[in-house]
Simulated assay, not measured.
Amino acid sequence: MTKILNLCFLFAVSGAQAFGVAPIQGYEVGSHKITDYADIDLPVSCAQPSCQLKAHIANGRFRIDGKVEKLQMLHRSGSKVSPQQVAREYTASLTKVGGKLLNRESGENGAFVFKVPDGAGHVWVVLDDNFAGYHTLYLVTPQTRASTVSVQASELAASLRSDGLATLYINFDTGRSELKAAVEPTIDETVTLLKQQPTLRVSVEGHTDNQGDAAANRQLSLDRARAIVAALEARGIAKGRLAAKGHGQDAPIADNRKEDGRAKNRRVELVQLT
C-alpha cells in the first residue's frame, strides 16, 4: 500500500487557508499555484444515492468557485497506482481531520470531491486523476468574486452612442442566474439610462466563458439576461423596450485559456435595438 507521508491544514485567523500536502509515495509536487479567484469545472460521477453533490452538479459536471490552490502530483516510480487507490489514501488522511468524501463512485468517471471543515466553514478538496502519470488536487476556499463593477448611466449612454452596446460585469454564482444584492447599483443606473432616453430599446444579452457544456451555457446566459430584464421591468421599464438573448460561450472577447480572459467573457451586454 502506498501511504501519504504527511498532510496538514494550517488555518489563518482571518479565515484564509494555507494547505500543505505531501505527495503519495512515488509522487512529487510538479507544480503549485494559488489563484485568488477561479472557477473549478470538472466531470464527476454522482449517480448513486450516496452521492452528496447533487446540488452542485449540472450536466454531469461539478462547478464551484473561490480561492483556489492547485497542486499537480507527478508519478516518479515504476509502480502503477489506480485512481481508486489514490483516493483511498487521501480519504484516510482527510477523514482524520474531519473531511468527508462525497462521491465514492467516482474515479475513471471523474473527480473525487471532499468537503473538509476549517472551523469557520469548509474547504473543498477535489482530486482529479489524469491517467497520465499524475493527479491534481484543487483546494477551494469558498469566497465571493470581486464586487460587481458598477457603471454610471452616462457611461452606458456613451458606450451605446459610440459602439451600439454597453458591457455590464455582473456577479452571478457559478451555474446560477439569480441576481445578488451587489448588482442593485448597476440595475439602478441602467434604469436611469432608460428613463433618460424614453425611446431607447435594448437587447439584454448574456455571455459565458467556455467552461462546461455549450448548450447549458447558452441556456444559463439566457436565464441571466431574463433575470436582468425582469429586474428592469420591476422598476418600471416597459416590457416592449426590452429583449433578452443568451449567447453562451459563442462570442468571447478575451482568451478563455486564462482566468482573467474568462472573467471578461462572463458578461452581459446592452445592445441598442433599432
Rank of each mutant, 00 (worst) to 15 (best):
K245W: 13
V86A: 00
A227R: 01
L10N: 14
N109Q: 15
V151L: 11
V123N: 00
V149S: 14
E205P: 00
D260L: 14
A254R: 06
L7A: 10
E108Q: 12
G164F: 07
E189A: 15
A16N: 07
L102D: 03
N265S: 01
F9M: 07
A16G: 08
Y134R: 04
E69H: 11
G164K: 03
R235N: 08
F9P: 02
V202Q: 00
G248A: 11
P117T: 14
S93F: 02
S221Q: 05
V183A: 08
C8Q: 14
R201S: 00
R235I: 09
S177L: 13
T192F: 11
V123W: 00
G99Q: 01
Q52H: 14
N103D: 05
V97Q: 01
D41I: 09
I228Y: 01
A111Q: 02
I187E: 03
G133N: 09
E269F: 01
V140I: 03
N256G: 05
F131L: 15
Y37F: 15
A215S: 12
G236T: 15
A254M: 07
A16L: 07
E269M: 07
G240D: 09
G66N: 02
L127N: 01
P252Q: 05
S45M: 09
I4W: 05
A58K: 09
F112T: 01
G261N: 05
D118I: 08
I40H: 04
S150N: 08
V268I: 15
S82H: 11
L165W: 03
T167E: 07
G107S: 12
L137F: 00
Q219G: 10
A263W: 00
E269C: 07
T186M: 06
D118R: 08
I228F: 09
T174G: 12
S147Q: 15
E205H: 04
A47I: 10
S147F: 11
L165V: 06
A166P: 04
G30L: 11
N59H: 15
Q219H: 09
N265M: 01
G133S: 06
E189F: 06
G99V: 02
F19S: 07
E105G: 11
R224K: 08
E259M: 14
F19Y: 06
V151T: 06
E108K: 12
R161N: 13
L156A: 08
H75V: 03
A166G: 08
G60R: 10
K258V: 09
K33C: 12
V113Y: 01
